[in-house]
Amino acid sequence: MRKVAALVAAAALFGASACQQPAFAAERVVEAPAASRIAKEGSGLKTAIFAGGCFWGVEAVFSHTKGVTSAVSGYHGGTRRQADYKLVSSGITDHVEAVKVTYDPRVVRYDELLRIFFSVIADPTLKDRQGPDRGAHYNAELVPLSAEQRAVASAYLSKLKKSGLWSRPIVTSIEPAKTFYPAETYHQDFAAKNPRHPYIVRWDVPKVSALKRLYPSLYRAKFRRN
């Protein structure tokens, strides 16, 4: 509780802070289409980075996804010196909140992770915001870490644009990989450690519930702790 109290205090001190802004409107759940290009990544664990607003919810969903062996909240891009919650959440750095996901492609493929991401985590029509959070550090971005992931991501975004599921243009981008800095310890497994936190209850529990409802074969009840 001390860490949560410190987080709230930091939000008050630095203004529009990460994962702490008031609710504006409910996030829309959309069953995104299955990919036309299936990821072919072979055996062995693979890693990719997803930025989709507050990293608490991104991590929570992927931690409940079968085949994911690790989901680490952190900051993508920027500098090591500024990879600090207070600075990133103030909006003065070049980081985005992101989650590094390690997964077993024999259980869940990269294209399936993309489908989950756009179905229950991120609205691909929003720029520099997601859910109740505003700022460039909340932008939705795909960060492939291999040529195959990049090709699959590009094909998938093209399919989303043609799907007609969203009335506004698709603006989520594919970004080159930069340095990923793990966030502070108290951010890791935040939803599991703080299930009654108002933000988690309001914004992230519904995402995990949507994962279970839409993709029951890929859902696991036990939270994957880092």
Score class of each variant (00 low, 15 high):
A71M: 13
V72H: 00
T93P: 03
E97L: 12
A51S: 14
E184Y: 12
D123E: 05
L218K: 06
A12E: 14
G78F: 05
H95T: 10
G44Q: 15
A39T: 11
Q130S: 13
P195S: 07
T185S: 14
G42I: 13
L160V: 01
D204R: 01
P144D: 12
F24Q: 14
T179F: 01
A98N: 10
A177R: 01
A51P: 06
D128G: 08
F118K: 00
V30N: 00
V88K: 02
E184K: 11
R225W: 09
S146E: 05
P124K: 02
T69Y: 04
A9D: 14
K178F: 01
A11M: 10
I174V: 15
A192H: 09
A71D: 10
A26D: 15
L114S: 01
P206Y: 09
E97Q: 14
D189K: 10
A51K: 05
V29T: 07
A221E: 09
A51E: 12
C54H: 07
F62H: 02
R2L: 06
V72C: 05
A12F: 10
P216H: 10
L160I: 03
A71Y: 12
A177P: 09
F55K: 04
V72R: 02
R213N: 08
R225M: 10
S17Y: 11
V107W: 10
S119R: 01
I92Q: 15
D94G: 08
S217T: 13
S119G: 03
G91H: 09
P195E: 05
R150I: 00
F117M: 06
Y156K: 03
P176K: 12
R106I: 06
R109N: 12
V96F: 03
S90G: 15
R196C: 02
L165R: 02
A98H: 06
L214K: 01
G57E: 05
H137I: 07
R106A: 15
